[in-house]
Amino acid sequence: MRHDHLITSKQLSRADVETVLDRAAEIDADPSAVADRHAGSLLGLLFFEPSTRTKMSFEAAMKRLGGDVVDMGSVESSSVKKGETLADTVRVIEGYADALVLRHPKQGAATMASEFVDVPLLNAGDGAGHHPTQTLLDLYTIRENAGLEDLTVGIMGDLKYGRTVHSLAHALTNFDARQHFVSPESLRLPREVVYDLHQAGNGAGIREHESLEEVLPSLDVLYVTRIQRERFPDENEYQKVAGEYQIDLETLEAADDDLTVMHPLPRVDEIAPEIDDTEYAAYFEQAHNGVPVRMALLDLLLSNGGETDE
């Protein structure tokens, strides 16, 4: 891997992904081997939007590598409240840390911020744009549960605004996966993402559907995302649509026994709790994988500026 910053999954080649996942597997098998590897290093956390999993797993990852974090805190308690630009904020905080993690509500925020800093910057979500570190832990989870070869993936829910979906879909083009996108008409993949998938040469492997039923039996992985209430003009419309994209044990009767069900979390009621204790459920494991995968990513970026032996 040779990147100063990680902004979108489009940057990642198959070899890049495998480098991170292999390193994550090594760390997962023996976390103590890297316990002091980055002692003295500091990771700057800039979260302009709420986050539980991403922020805490980055913090856990850095601390488990022997380093520590400096956290901007909430927007309300920071200089942002006084009108400071993002460009200024990142330039200040890069002086305090060896790498930065940024989540911001505006699309393209990470791209712009990366132009103002010299330390590695990791995009932890930019509006409806991208979320590449989530993608790496998603791919790690897929590899552990279903393998990344000859894969058929269903991605369901809010495909329009779901940044985890946009990043994952592109990364999967590295693996020639067949991708079925299941959503209501109003929440289909943005044309920009479809364009990218075609540009990546994966046009033939992409299908869009309004119903899960027709594709469920063929899936190795079902990646479910939350349909947010605020995307709909009224409550009735939301209830009607959201209800069609929820799964329970009855839904999964049509699925392959080896199906892996994933979700970036938080869920509301897209996946019935009765699935949690079945062999299908991989979403909590997926959330836990955020730590070793982010440890691997930080280790690679902090060890050699993102360069591996070539």
Binding site: T85, L86, A87, P105, K106, Q107, A109, M112, D126
Partner: peptide, 8 residues
């Protein structure tokens, strides 16, 4: 929602 429209 683009960062270029956000006063940066």
């Amino acid at each position: 929602d683009c960062i270029t429209a956000a006063g940066e």
